[in-house]
Amino acid sequence: LKGVVVAGGVLAGAVAVASFFLRNKRR
């Protein structure tokens, strides 16, 4: 169960970083 929580956190972080980079590329 702990691994699932960690994986979810990593996935959420990756999505946040990806969206951040996409926003920067638009400018």
Results as ranks from 00 to 15, higher is better:
residue 16 A to N: 02
residue 11 L to D: 00
residue 27 R to H: 13
residue 11 L to T: 02
residue 10 V to L: 15
residue 4 V to W: 11
residue 10 V to Q: 03
residue 1 L to Q: 01
residue 27 R to L: 14
residue 27 R to C: 04
residue 20 F to W: 09
residue 22 L to P: 00
residue 15 V to P: 00
residue 16 A to R: 09
residue 4 V to N: 07
residue 6 V to S: 04
residue 4 V to S: 10
residue 12 A to C: 09
residue 5 V to L: 04
residue 5 V to H: 04
residue 14 A to P: 01
residue 6 V to M: 11
residue 17 V to C: 08
residue 10 V to C: 14
residue 26 R to G: 14
residue 25 K to G: 12
residue 27 R to A: 14
residue 25 K to C: 12
residue 10 V to T: 06
residue 5 V to N: 03
residue 18 A to E: 00
residue 4 V to P: 02
residue 8 G to Q: 06
residue 15 V to G: 02
residue 10 V to D: 01
residue 1 L to S: 08
residue 16 A to W: 13
residue 3 G to D: 06
residue 27 R to V: 12
residue 2 K to Y: 06
residue 19 S to L: 12
residue 1 L to W: 12
residue 22 L to V: 06
residue 23 R to D: 01
residue 19 S to E: 07
residue 26 R to Y: 10
residue 2 K to P: 10
residue 24 N to V: 14
residue 13 G to F: 13
residue 9 G to C: 08
residue 15 V to E: 00
residue 25 K to W: 13
residue 18 A to Q: 02
residue 23 R to A: 10
residue 4 V to G: 04
residue 7 A to Y: 14
residue 7 A to Q: 07
residue 5 V to C: 15
residue 6 V to P: 01
residue 2 K to S: 10
residue 15 V to D: 00
residue 12 A to W: 08
residue 20 F to V: 09
residue 13 G to L: 08
residue 1 L to H: 11
residue 21 F to M: 02
residue 23 R to T: 06
residue 4 V to H: 06
residue 9 G to S: 13
residue 2 K to Q: 07
residue 15 V to M: 09
residue 26 R to H: 15
residue 17 V to R: 04
residue 11 L to M: 13
residue 22 L to I: 10
residue 24 N to W: 08
residue 14 A to Y: 08
residue 2 K to E: 01
residue 23 R to I: 08
residue 24 N to T: 09
residue 16 A to Y: 11
residue 27 R to N: 13
residue 12 A to S: 07
residue 23 R to F: 14
residue 13 G to E: 05
residue 24 N to A: 12
residue 5 V to W: 03
residue 14 A to C: 15
residue 24 N to I: 12
residue 3 G to W: 14
residue 25 K to L: 15
residue 18 A to T: 11
residue 21 F to L: 10
residue 24 N to S: 13
residue 23 R to M: 02
residue 18 A to L: 14
residue 12 A to Q: 05
residue 7 A to P: 04
residue 3 G to H: 13
residue 9 G to F: 04
residue 24 N to L: 12
residue 7 A to N: 06
residue 15 V to R: 05
residue 8 G to N: 06
residue 1 L to M: 02
residue 11 L to S: 01
residue 23 R to L: 13
residue 1 L to K: 14
residue 26 R to E: 10
residue 10 V to A: 11
residue 17 V to F: 14
residue 6 V to Y: 15
residue 4 V to K: 14
residue 6 V to W: 08
residue 26 R to S: 12
residue 23 R to G: 05
residue 21 F to W: 14
residue 25 K to F: 12
residue 17 V to D: 00
residue 12 A to T: 13
residue 18 A to H: 03
residue 12 A to Y: 09
residue 12 A to P: 02
residue 4 V to M: 01
residue 15 V to K: 04
residue 21 F to H: 03
residue 12 A to R: 08
residue 3 G to S: 06
residue 17 V to Q: 01
residue 22 L to E: 01
residue 12 A to M: 13
residue 16 A to E: 02
residue 11 L to R: 01
residue 19 S to Q: 12
residue 26 R to W: 14
residue 23 R to H: 07
residue 7 A to T: 13
residue 26 R to D: 08
residue 13 G to M: 10
residue 8 G to L: 07
residue 7 A to H: 08
residue 24 N to D: 04
residue 6 V to C: 10
residue 26 R to M: 14
residue 11 L to P: 00
residue 18 A to P: 00
residue 26 R to N: 10
residue 22 L to S: 03
residue 18 A to V: 15
residue 26 R to Q: 08
residue 27 R to Q: 11
residue 2 K to R: 10
residue 21 F to P: 00
residue 20 F to A: 08
residue 12 A to N: 03
residue 5 V to T: 12
residue 6 V to G: 03
residue 9 G to D: 06
residue 19 S to R: 09
residue 1 L to R: 11
residue 17 V to I: 10
residue 23 R to E: 02
residue 13 G to D: 03
residue 12 A to G: 06
residue 26 R to A: 11
residue 22 L to M: 10
residue 22 L to F: 08
residue 16 A to H: 07
residue 21 F to V: 10
